[in-house]
Design a protein around this nucleic acid. Structure first.
Lengths: 216, 216
DNA sequence: GTCTATAACTAGATAGAC
DNA sequence: GTCTATCTAGTTATAGAC
């Protein structure tokens, strides 16, 4: 385990960076405070001094990672809604996925943290992060409804989540997929993947238009 | 934590059932052998007697859960290939997803275990399970290629994985989605979800036909 | 095969000196 | 703010009686 370029960053920042990397690589339960403080080159007692507990540190790491991403998503959606030109499904999907792919491109930790969240069943943490996402989801769902009024709302809600899951899964497994089929991985360039993802998603969503919702 | 209907099942079976449920609900690292043996109503030392270690028990639980499922997938795929009628993309996707959805319908533990696998970064376990899947993936990819020769192979490989990820994600989060939009969850009946999933997936995949692969 | 008892270890958290 | 030392509780695994 190598050390970080800690330079003269403050202790809390060093801890957050080390924790983010280790949570991403090893999971939350799989990472001890000892490992974090060793990588951050701070004393073992510093975590409980600057944060209150391991749980509080975990929440801080996730918030630091997710909040700027969601802010950028909302910014892009606002631009799509008010920036002239029609509000298309393509632009809504782009506002949702482009910031995520850019984040992934510069720092793979982000998507790994999303994966940890999916399967480390810490109810408190899950609810906490969930709260960050609810207003975002509502905003995007309203926009998608405007952009594709002929697709039933429950279908929009469901299939956008489905697409989100597909993206998370393929990013999480991109190394394994590369190993299985070298050179056949379409996510080697963000822009190309984004383009194909939007094509795939809108084709799937539009195939659901006109159809009746299955529940009244 | 309730006890299982252990009846007069042998000790190993009791341990496997208890471990499966707890791994699904709490994760692997989040579950101690003490919890497992208490739920199974066997002695704490029984695990190390019947299995060799916690790791060996974990592998046994996952194999027991995944192997019959993959056998059924291959059976359905063989039927689609040799049972008369053309081999369509629809039938390939159905062979891949129908057994998974049926398993989910009768025992939600299965999909939760898939989720644990995604994010508990135990390299040994991941590689072990990975080995179970490689031949399956190759078989399905060959069939998909026959069914959709006009879609580039790398796209088939990628988007089928993508669909798999979407299914895993939506099943994993089906309770949360139900909470967010009550009554708008299309996976309340397996057959309806399967039908729509195949429609969505084939629409997406067919939108990729004719296009050039992005890498030579 | 099943049990008790315990070994050997690691975790998160804290008290108190500096 | 930072350190050492230590506490308490939990973990897997095993030895050995029954």
């Amino acid at each position: 385990m190598e050390t970080l370029e800690t330079a003269n960053k403050p202790t809390t920042e060093r801890i957050l960076e080390a924790a983010e990397g280790l949570f991403a690589a090893q999971g939350i339960r799989g990472t001890s405070l000892k490992e974090i403080t060793e990588l951050a080159e701070v004393n073992i007692a510093a975590v409980n001094y600057h944060f209150r507990s391991k749980d509080a540190l975990v929440r801080a790491v996730f918030e630091r990672s997710f909040e700027p991403l969601n802010a950028e998503r909302l910014r892009m959606l606002g631009e799509a809604e008010n920036g002239g030109g029609p509000l298309t499904l393509e632009r809504v999907l782009r506002a949702l996925f482009e910031p995520m792919l850019r984040a992934w491109q510069t720092n793979r930790n982000f998507i790994l943290l999303v994966g940890r969240l999916q399967s480390e069943p810490d109810a408190e943490l899950t609810n906490h992060i969930h709260g960050l996402y609810v207003p975002l989801i509502e905003r995007f769902l309203r926009a998608a409804r405007r952009a594709a009024p002929d697709v039933p709302e429950n279908e929009l809600f469901f299939w956008i989540h489905f697409l989100f899951g597909g993206v998370v899964y393929t990013l999480l497994n991109s190394q394994d997929m590369e190993k299985m089929h070298p050179g056949q991985n379409p996510i080697d360039t963000t822009e190309a993947f984004l383009h194909d993802l939007i094509a795939f998603g809108t084709a799937g969503l539009r195939s659901r238009s006109q159809s009746q919702p299955r529940r009244s």
